[in-house]
Amino acid sequence: MRSARLEMALESGAFVVPPEGDVVVLAPQAGDDLSALPKLRVVVLTGFKPDYDHFQRLGYRMDTARATAAVLCLPRAKAEALALIAQAFSLLPAGAPVLVDGQKTDGPEAVLKLACAAGIAHGEVISKAHGKAFVLRAGPAPAGWTAAPRRVAGGFVTRPGVFSADGPDRGSELLAAVLPDKIKGHVADLGAGWGYLARAILARQGVTSLDLVEADREALDCARENITDPRAQFHWADATGFKPARPWDAVVMNPPFHTSRAADPELGAAFIRAAHRGLLPTGTLWLVANRHLPYDRILTPLFRSVEDIGGDAAFRLIRAANPIRARL
């Protein structure tokens, strides 16, 4: 686990925390144990709202003024990992230590090789608990490492690390193609990402307002650039617990089904329950899901009408209408 490598790096002297200044921890996940660090000096930086809320509840500061060391929790996407290193370097004085940590599946060896090729000084490599950690010394970020927006099909802007950064995913394309022109009123896009489905929703003239709800701040920032329609309202929030100011006439969504890196159908189920809670009694849910996910057992007790409306070998398109309310 991450905490074991962090403790070993501190105890061995491979990672030395300076006596003053903040220790920035970039992109930790809920459940990561940071107790080996001096809590009063720790600042957590994350753009994923559930993780942000978790560490804020634990009493960590969530912004920094002057940092002298950093701990970086590697994501799996290489471009995102390099962008996080560049971000860490930008927050620190030259030569400050950055402990880079990741499970083997996060590719720490590949990141270390790139750092070596770029001439970045590094310390010993700590291997423990199916992962590796090593210290880099802050300096100018190598060319191309800083996160930069990119243009993809349709003229959309994305950034490294956001879901489907190279272009719209197949499930969203299928769902956008079957949305009827008759969608109207107050609509939600739960897990809106960088705005692909939102643009398709707002093409329906009967839509009066659209809540884009997204937990990834980078993705939501992209959506703000991609969607300039005044009917759109942007919410940095965990969709599974989001409560609309007023009920929705329709919800459109391509929910995630991974928690961290493990498949977790319950995450998609939580999105379905959130849609159910937020819809009017006459409301409709439009959903795309991987065919292997057992969503029927969630949808059937919650909606009076559930039907397949298309898809392909990998994806189901589902329309669920008229939420069932429990009788008190």
Score class of each variant (00 low, 15 high):
residue 2 R to I: 00
residue 6 L to E: 04
residue 18 P to I: 03
residue 21 G to Y: 01
residue 26 L to V: 14
residue 26 L to R: 13
residue 29 Q to D: 13
residue 30 A to E: 09
residue 31 G to H: 03
residue 32 D to H: 09
residue 34 L to A: 03
residue 36 A to C: 07
residue 40 L to M: 10
residue 42 V to K: 00
residue 47 G to Y: 11
residue 49 K to P: 01
residue 55 F to W: 06
residue 63 D to T: 13
residue 64 T to Y: 11
residue 66 R to D: 14
residue 68 T to Q: 10
residue 70 A to W: 05
residue 70 A to E: 11
residue 78 K to N: 04
residue 79 A to G: 07
residue 81 A to Y: 04
residue 82 L to F: 14
residue 87 Q to V: 02
residue 96 A to F: 03
residue 97 P to G: 05
residue 98 V to D: 07
residue 106 D to Y: 02
residue 107 G to T: 08
residue 107 G to I: 10
residue 107 G to H: 14
residue 107 G to A: 09
residue 107 G to L: 08
residue 109 E to G: 10
residue 110 A to I: 09
residue 111 V to M: 02
residue 112 L to E: 06
residue 115 A to M: 09
residue 116 C to I: 14
residue 119 G to Y: 00
residue 123 G to K: 02
residue 126 I to H: 02
residue 129 A to F: 00
residue 135 V to Y: 01
residue 139 G to V: 08
residue 140 P to L: 08
residue 142 P to S: 07
residue 142 P to D: 12
residue 142 P to Y: 12
residue 146 T to R: 14
residue 147 A to L: 01
residue 151 R to S: 13
residue 151 R to W: 09
residue 152 V to C: 09
residue 152 V to K: 06
residue 153 A to H: 13
residue 153 A to K: 12
residue 156 F to M: 03
residue 156 F to R: 02
residue 158 T to L: 07
residue 159 R to Q: 11
residue 159 R to K: 14
residue 163 F to Y: 13
residue 164 S to Y: 01
residue 165 A to E: 15
residue 166 D to V: 08
residue 167 G to A: 04
residue 172 S to V: 07
residue 173 E to H: 06
residue 173 E to V: 14
residue 176 A to H: 01
residue 176 A to K: 03
residue 181 D to C: 09
residue 184 K to M: 13
residue 191 G to N: 08
residue 195 G to W: 06
residue 195 G to I: 03
residue 201 I to R: 03
residue 203 A to H: 11
residue 203 A to K: 14
residue 207 V to W: 02
residue 211 D to F: 04
residue 224 R to W: 05
residue 228 T to W: 06
residue 231 R to L: 05
residue 233 Q to H: 15
residue 233 Q to D: 10
residue 236 W to V: 12
residue 238 D to L: 04
residue 246 R to C: 13
residue 250 A to P: 04
residue 250 A to T: 10
residue 251 V to H: 00
residue 256 P to F: 08
residue 258 H to A: 10
residue 262 A to H: 13
residue 276 H to V: 03
residue 278 G to M: 04
residue 279 L to I: 04
residue 285 L to K: 04
residue 285 L to W: 02
residue 286 W to V: 09
residue 286 W to F: 15
residue 286 W to M: 13
residue 289 A to M: 14
residue 291 R to G: 03
residue 293 L to A: 11
residue 294 P to R: 06
residue 294 P to V: 12
residue 304 R to F: 11
residue 311 G to T: 02
residue 312 D to V: 10
residue 317 L to A: 05
residue 318 I to K: 00
residue 325 R to G: 12
residue 325 R to H: 12
residue 325 R to A: 15
residue 326 A to H: 11
residue 328 L to H: 15
residue 328 L to F: 14
